[in-house]
């Protein structure tokens, strides 16, 4: 896109509130949707006698813990990155490059996706597939839906990265990247609940 050489004004508060409010409703809505999945989880788990099932391969706890740590790191990094971007004016962002936090966020985000893939492969290799039973239904089903959001999140982040590099986004157009990062935080929170549900409690 056209890169303005002049310094653009920061995005106004009105526009920021508008878009963020929309995002808040979106997150509220999506929480209901994941809330439904967790409700299903709670009901089904409570119905089945032994939990988690014994005598079969379960997803790897250390790897899942690692994935959780990586995803949290990613969220924190993006949060930092945003603070940095908002503090600068837009040309400065472009001149300074994307900044380390943003890159770290992206790398850890992709790392999480790979770890998630590994978790599935590992379980599949142990002969547990989605139709093996209730535990597998829940594990694959819920992580699939989550992974879909990870995918969408990563694509949006990629889009934001390109835009940032081109100077399209910055403190002059902050809401878009802010919303993408809010979405990413949401994906993070959902994963934490998933992690707690499957591995801790």
């Amino acid at each position: 896109m056209t890169s303005a050489a002049i310094s653009l004004p920061k995005e106004g508060i009105k526009s920021r509130v508008n878009t963020t409010l929309g995002m808040v409703f979106f997150i509220g809505s999506w929480s209901m949707s994941f809330g439904t999945l967790f409700l299903a989880f709670a009901v089904l788990r409570q119905r089945s006698g032994v939990w988690p099932p014994v005598g079969i391969a379960l997803p790897s706890l250390p790897m899942a813990t690692l994935a959780t740590a990586v995803l949290i790191a990613s969220s924190v990094a993006f949060h930092r990155a945003l603070q940095g971007i908002d503090a600068k004016d837009s040309n400065a962002v472009r001149a300074d490059g994307l900044g380390l936090p943003w890159i770290i966020g992206l790398v850890t985000g992709v790392a999480f996706a790979l770890l998630q893939g590994w978790l599935w492969m590992d379980l599949m290799a142990a002969g547990r597939n989605p139709s093996s039973g209730l535990y597998e239904s829940l594990f694959y089903g819920l992580t699939w839906v989550h992974a879909l959001h990870v995918g969408i999140g990563l694509l949006s982040l990629l889009w934001a990265t390109i835009g940032l590099a081109a100077g399209r986004y910055g403190s002059h157009r902050f809401s878009t990247i802010n919303n993408i990062v809010i979405f990413w935080h949401f994906v993070d929170v959902v994963w934490i609940v998933l992690y707690l549900a499957f591995f801790i409690f």
Binding site: W30, M32, S33, T36, L37, A40, L44, S131, S137, V145
Partner: peptide, 23 residues
């Protein structure tokens, strides 16, 4: 608030039908 609930229910139903899960 409530359309997401049916959305998720439909996802689970689709998984049951297509991937053999047993929600």
């Amino acid at each position: 608030l409530f359309i997401p609930v049916i959305g998720s229910a439909m996802l689970l139903l689709i998984m049951d039908r297509v991937f053999g899960t047993t929600f």
